[in-house]
């Protein structure tokens, strides 16, 4: 009866998770490349040219998956943070730290591609649309998390402080989203809206989903790789790291 519990918690130790992550990374990289190639091929060559927007719309195959990932990664980060606070596991904090830069990257990518798309379509790089604004604030939240963690020297304190901040952030995200949305409708500011024609060709949807899977796999691979580095750095005084490094050198 206890076996299952032990199996779960076995990989909560960096010493056992490190090799497991090392074995998993190539698979996720391979999946990411396959999904990415398929999704981009569908998106760039197979999907029909949009009636209104021409070829320029194809940037949404990067833009939409990046936005999805930026929001999803914050949730995953908060999940790891909560786990770390509840069970006081070292690995959870490392995972949250490892995810933050990828999440910030996705948020930035989403804003950047959005601006590139907005210039030809709306004639402006930026509008104070509710979604754009809340994505920008999400980027600020990521930056705050990273800045807080990098200002604290003691890694355990950095993990816990970051965890509290991530949880406060995740409670606030819906509040921020709705306040920005209401603010936007009250001000009647942006005359253009992001809501496009509801009917989307099936190939477009497939391409978008495939690229989203590609980004998902990429994020896992990169986060695991980063977590491996964090593990080595923080556990450098331990026996297993010493053995591992000695084994690599010989």
């Amino acid at each position: 009866m206890n076996n299952r519990l032990i199996n779960w918690f076995k990989f909560a130790s960096p010493a056992t998770f490190y090799p497991l992550a090392g074995k998993m990374i190539p698979w996720f990289v391979a999946l990411s490349v396959v999904f990415g190639a398929a999704g981009l091929y569908l998106g760039m060559f197979v999907a029909p040219t949009d009636f209104q927007q021409g070829e320029g719309y194809r940037i949404i195959f990067i833009h939409v998956p990046a936005s999805w990932m930026s929001m999803f990664i914050y949730l995953v980060m908060a999940f790891w943070a909560a786990l770390g606070l509840a069970f006081n596991t070292r690995l959870s904090g490392m995972m949250a730290t490892a995810l933050a830069p990828t999440g910030a990257l996705m948020a930035f990518l989403s804003l950047w591609t959005g601006a590139l798309w907005g210039k030809p379509m709306w004639g402006t790089w930026w509008v104070w649309d509710a979604r754009l604004t809340s994505e920008l604030i999400l980027l600020f939240l990521y930056i705050g998390f990273i800045a807080l963690q990098s200002a604290i020297d003691d890694p355990r304190r950095a993990d816990k402080a970051g965890a509290v901040l991530a949880l406060v952030g995740v409670v606030n995200i819906p509040i921020i989203y709705f306040s920005v949305k209401w603010w936007n409708t009250l001000h009647q500011g942006a005359s253009v809206s992001l809501t496009k024609s509801p009917s989307m060709a099936a190939t477009m949807l497939w391409a978008m989903l495939l690229v989203a899977l590609c980004f998902w796999m990429y994020s896992i691979a990169v986060a695991l790789g980063r977590a491996r580095n964090i593990m080595l750095e923080r556990e450098r005084h331990t026996e297993w790291v010493r053995q591992l490094l000695a084994g690599k050198e010989s």
Binding site: I137, F140, L141, I143, G144, A147, L148, A151, L165, V168, G169, N172, I175, I176, S179, V180, W182, W183
Partner: peptide, 17 residues
């Protein structure tokens, strides 16, 4: 400076309303 990075995004709803 750090406190402003952490806190100002969370102040946005109060500012808006």
């Amino acid at each position: 400076v750090l406190v402003s990075l952490l806190v100002l995004p969370l102040y946005i709803p109060v500012l808006i309303f």
